[in-house]
Design a protein around this nucleic acid. Sequence first.
DNA 1: GCCTGTGAATCCATTCACAGCT
DNA 2: AGCTGTGAATGGATTCACAGGC
Lengths: 211, 211
Amino acid sequence: MNKESKIPAPTIERLAYYSRPLESLLNSETPVISSEKLAHLCGVNPAQVRKDLAYFGEFGVRGVGYNVRDLLWEIKKILATDRDWTLCMVGMGNLGSAIVENENFKKRGYKFVAAFDSDPTKIGRTLPCGLIIEPTNRIGEFVRDLKVEIGVITTRPHEAQRFADLLMDSGVKAILNFASIQIRTPECCEVENVDFAVKLENLAYHIAKIL
Amino acid sequence: MNKESKIPAPTIERLAYYSRPLESLLNSETPVISSEKLAHLCGVNPAQVRKDLAYFGEFGVRGVGYNVRDLLWEIKKILATDRDWTLCMVGMGNLGSAIVENENFKKRGYKFVAAFDSDPTKIGRTLPCGLIIEPTNRIGEFVRDLKVEIGVITTRPHEAQRFADLLMDSGVKAILNFASIQIRTPECCEVENVDFAVKLENLAYHIAKIL
DNA sequence: GCCTGTGAATCCATTCACAGCT
DNA sequence: AGCTGTGAATGGATTCACAGGC
């Protein structure tokens, strides 16, 4: 862990990106891939690919390249996506529902085992996936009983911090936050923020320069 | 543009983050804010805030701070979010629908004027917002007629590149891509990729280290 | 000959520290 | 006295370039 703790955050993110084309390649008849080809598929520099992978071991063969199947397996082991994870959703609006129902997540081992909302008209409703929407005041209870590991938040911004605190107190170890607010968190809990509007604002900035 | 072209990408992203608390502050009785306070609200270093803003002008008053209203206005001008943008959605699954219906986007001036899907059972359906789902083979026509500026893609990965090409050929200047694939794009078109699963894989990596 | 793994060099972003204004 | 604006210093990450192994 001491050694791994100084691995750059961008490296971890890129590992996930590398795994995408590798998955497609698995089905095709391509047993081996070079850093050059993989880099091209992911839009990065070949040296970057080699350096990223070298942090974790020597996965390649000089003069040959990387075995696709083995490399994918190694990356999954590193990212800990070779196992299932238990999630819950707080906020069952359009976005929350879309994520809970998402087949892609299920396929990757991210299983939602609880869904919460504070809107009384939504509570008790059964989702297509079989989950029943529970009231937010039962978050602690459910998270503890079901041993939820990752919490996802899609509520309004002003409620997000409160629910994040609740999730953390109940033992959640990581939070994926879609509310457009910076969630404050102690050391023990990892947070990733995703704000679509920020991405759009980025695009707006760049294209406004041209027009 | 020459001067602005060497502005760090992270700066642009942070400007959007700065605007969030400023919007809340507008309603409260806080006419002025220091870089220290704003930095704290956004979880960054105060010098970072000052440097980011200084790229674009001298918005603050020494010994005092930044006027909240003025600063927000300047940031909106920089990000070009002081005007409306015309968007279209390709892929009307759960995620696509959730984004098109999102009130937050509308409020920020991102207006969806067309929605496409290739599933015949979805085509012709009227959305709560009033839009009718059109077949993907009419993308070119609609995008040109309605002068769509930004395209959003939420299709399966294997179709994403094809639709991106189609959007670009029809005059779209920027693409927000939610499909888990790296979209290849010429100079003239900006792309932002958002992959939720990558964020989850990041979290998984970090919490697996602890467990 | 080809491609990986890696120290060295470069590039970029963040933070520091203080001069300058109110 | 207080807080911005900014050159200088630091700290990271990316890229280069080549030694090492197939």
